[in-house]
Write a protein that binds this DNA or RNA. Sequence first.
DNA 1: CTAGGAGCTCGAGTCGGCTCTAGGTCAAGC
DNA 2: GCTTGACCTAGAGCCGACTCGAGCTCCTAG
Lengths: 153, 153
Amino acid sequence: MAEDIASLSIGQVAERTGLSVHALRFYEQEGVFVDPVRRGPGGRRVYSENDVDWLTVCIILRASGMPLPALRRYADLVRAGVGNEEERLALLREHREHVTSQIGRLTQCLDLIGFKVGLYEDLLDEAQRAIEPGRPRPSDGGDAPASTPGTSA
Amino acid sequence: MAEDIASLSIGQVAERTGLSVHALRFYEQEGVFVDPVRRGPGGRRVYSENDVDWLTVCIILRASGMPLPALRRYADLVRAGVGNEEERLALLREHREHVTSQIGRLTQCLDLIGFKVGLYEDLLDEAQRAIEPGRPRPSDGGDAPASTPGTSA
DNA sequence: CTAGGAGCTCGAGTCGGCTCTAGGTCAAGC
DNA sequence: GCTTGACCTAGAGCCGACTCGAGCTCCTAG
């Protein structure tokens, strides 16, 4: 089994994952790694390709809002080995729901923002066009009064 | 001008916005309100419908990840009145980009998670089906080895 | 008249997720 | 021999966004 081809220092892992060395040590301490990070001469951390692959997954999960404790739970399950696949699946599904609902909320927000952007664009357009007739405009982007779509749009 | 119909206490505003009274005071202190919250007898805060409308917008912006300082900047602009609509527009557009990119990232994450969920589902399906033939399976949901789609899927 | 409840201010505490510092080891290069 | 640079540990610090607590003022109801 060719397995020791890739042994990386913490600095190298930091470089290729984009995590800081601090964060890497922190993650280790938080139990995010599946197997304990090996140590080389002088107690230095030695990472395998596996470790990096796992980290890659972790980074994606983190980026989608999975908190470290959940990541740790997941790692715990994987570490425990065969037999808890249902639990892993449950964890992943739960997180997936979380992410989809997050996307849903963001999309709603996007609507409001788009609406407001539209208002301001119109307003500025109009003002632009009004320069020739020279008619001063009462500026209102829908900020103060009742024109905001709280629930209504 | 019918304007004082709606004057709400901090508790009422908390109730109908879902923010805590603590948060409301905090937001005020952070300059998130467009106009200074009025005070009633005994120095108690008195909120108008306008305030609540503004808060509603704020909540949505916050929910989409706008940090308080940005919210404050926005409020500053609105407070300053007519003439800075371009700046408001810029701020909103910037935030919109932020939100869209956020959605993009989340959607990518969703792909990975869906992929992994699929793997585990298949695995468990298979295991289920294997009960009759009675063949024990080597469990691998794509966690440790190179089957994870780091960049490749 | 007193107890409760809502509000006030100011300042401290919390939580998550890092980030930074201090003080030390080791190996390589000048 | 000395510096430099990458690494080590343990622990403190930081940031954002609240949350909570102490100690106070009111008003109202029993």
